[in-house]
Each structure stands twice: as structure tokens, then as C-alpha cells.
Amino acid sequence: MSARATLRLALVVLLLLVLQSTVMLSIRFEGIHPDIVWLLPITAALLAGPETGAIVGFWSGLAFDLVLPTPFGLSALVGSLLGFSMGVATAAVDSRAVWLRPVAAVVGSVAADMLFAVLGAIFGQQQMVQIDFFSLFLVVAVSSALLVLPVNRLVRWALSTEGNRRSLVSASSTESGRW
């Protein structure tokens, strides 16, 4: 990843971190707020493949871990696994498909939250599996489906200097069909 892409990604992560800590915390349904942290590795994986997805997932997760009361490094672990597996799972899918981003956002965010809770419990935080998972999945799924496109635009801007991108080239030629 080039230095320019790294700097841009850092800015995007900081922006989403501020949004998560302010705006997202004030939007609640049944006490649950949207989680936008997972959208970064998902969109990075869709745009540039599993390796970039894992790297973006690790660093964005680590940044979010700084302000979360959960074990430090847990979001980084889940983010890197999510980014890599999302990139692998969608490698054979036509990246121009209109449904790809919302579906990937919903499935990836819900799976990531589930993994986050289970790993947290394994690491001694049993309260993480004592929550209302139905409300959590509902809020996270709806918010991820709505927010994936703006986040995708930000990540695409950040990665636009990348040489090994997978779908950025095709994205620019078929942009109207995918946005």
C-alpha cells in the first residue's frame, strides 16, 4: 500500500471514528447503536481484495479499540478476519453487481458482530454474549445497508492510488451502475 493511500486511509478511519463516537452513539434503537467500524474492511476487501481488506480491517479495528472498553486488539482481530474472508468470499462475484455492496455489508457486519461477541466471551468478557442479539443484528444490518455506499465512496477515494486494486478500474468504467 502506497504512503499516499495509507495517509488517505488514516484520514478516513479518523473521520469514521469521530462519526461513530458522536453521531452514531446518539442514534439508538432499543439501546443499540449502529456500528460502522466493520464497513471499512468490507468495502476495502470488495474494492482491492482480501489482503488490503485484512490490512484495513486490522488498522481500523485497532483505532476503534482505542476508544472501546472491550479488550484492546479484539476489533483488530475481527476486522482483519472479516476483511480477508470478505475478499475471498466475493472474489468470484461480479464486482459491478448492484446488490453486492449492501448484501456484503449486511452479512459481513452481522457476522463480525457475532464473532466479536463470541471471541470477547472466550477472552473472559462473558457479558458480551448477554445482549439482545435480535435488536443488535437488526440495527447493524439496516444501518450497514444504508451507510455502505458513502463509506465505499470514501474508501475508494483513499485506495484510488493503489496499484494492485481489483475492482477500482472496472468501478470507474461502470460507476453509474454501482452507485
Binding site: 485484512a54 479488550p71 484492546f72 486488539g73 483488530a76 482481530l77 482483519s80
Partner: peptide, 13 residues
């Protein structure tokens, strides 16, 4: 990255 994450979690716990 997974090993690095697990190491950080171990440090924290």
C-alpha cells in the same frame, strides 16, 4: 495480522 492481534489482546489481558 491475526497473530499480531492475539498478541495485543494477550498484552491487554
Amino acid at each position: 495480522l491475526v497473530v499480531l492481534s492475539l498478541s495485543i489482546i494477550s498484552l491487554d489481558l
